[in-house]
């Protein structure tokens, strides 16, 4: 897998939130995108996920353009086949059980249900005993792990997590970071985490910081 972010620029009105952001991530690489709230992290992640169009530049995964200023990018298709996303607010479908959430994700993203992979992921994340529970019946920690499980059971090429440790204490922050790294390795996916939590910096070999719309290595 090769993620190529090339000179991304994005403005809201007269305010430029991203100014020529470029970086790349190779197969199995892991990186942290640091920045305070309002620094443009979520906008950058949305563009990488093909949910927003940049004003300039492009994003490609394995040379398939997922985001560009014009409408030619096959965002839906590339996102569906390449990405596993852990949202800040977890976003589990409340009407479905944990297992059904994972099955739905697999059906939509891969077209088939792989029960073996679901069982394995639930085991590794230590929530197999909660497979039949509905999201509102899960603790915060269980829901966090369920969201990770949903992102990895689709066998993504790139695992993306947006603020996965917000509102967690130090110990849980460490556990979530380790789980993300472990699960990404398990499915052979690259890992990109956007966070304002600099405690995560120690876990990643490659850190980027967004500062006033510009990306810097740190």
């Amino acid at each position: 897998m090769q993620l190529q972010v090339d000179a991304i620029g994005k403005s809201y009105g007269t305010t430029a939130v991203l100014k020529g952001v470029s970086f790349s991530l190779s197969d199995g690489e892991q990186a942290l995108l640091l920045g305070p709230s309002g620094s443009g992290k979520s906008t950058l992640l949305n563009i990488i996920c093909g949910l927003q169009r940049p004003d300039q530049g492009s994003v490609a995964i394995d040379n398939q353009v997922i985001a560009s200023p014009d409408s030619t990018a096959k965002s839906d298709e590339v996102r569906r086949t390449s990405l596993g996303i852990v949202f800040q607010t977890l976003r589990l479908v409340s009407a479905l059980s944990l297992r059904a959430n994972l099955e739905l994700a697999q059906k939509l993203q891969t077209g088939r249900v792989d029960s073996g992979l679901i069982d394995e992921s639930l085991d590794r994340l230590d929530i197999s005993h909660r497979a039949g529970a509905r999201p509102f019946q899960l603790s915060q920690g269980e829901a966090q792990r369920a969201a990770i499980a949903r992102a990895v059971v689709v066998s993504p090429k790139l695992l993306i997590a947006d603020e996965p440790t917000s509102a967690l204490d130090r110990e849980n922050t460490r556990r979530v970071a380790e789980l993300l790294i472990e699960m990404a390795k398990t499915v052979g996916a690259g890992l990109l985490i956007a966070t304002h939590d600099d405690r995560l910096g120690d876990f990643f070999p490659q850190n980027y910081a967004l500062d006033q719309g510009e990306l810097k290595s740190c």
Binding site: C49, R79, I85, F87, T89, S94, A105, L108, V154
Partner: peptide, 13 residues
């Protein structure tokens, strides 16, 4: 809306 947005992100047309 949140669920539906998620489904769109996951590939639902």
């Amino acid at each position: 809306e949140g669920d539906l947005a998620l489904l769109r992100v996951m590939g639902a047309t």
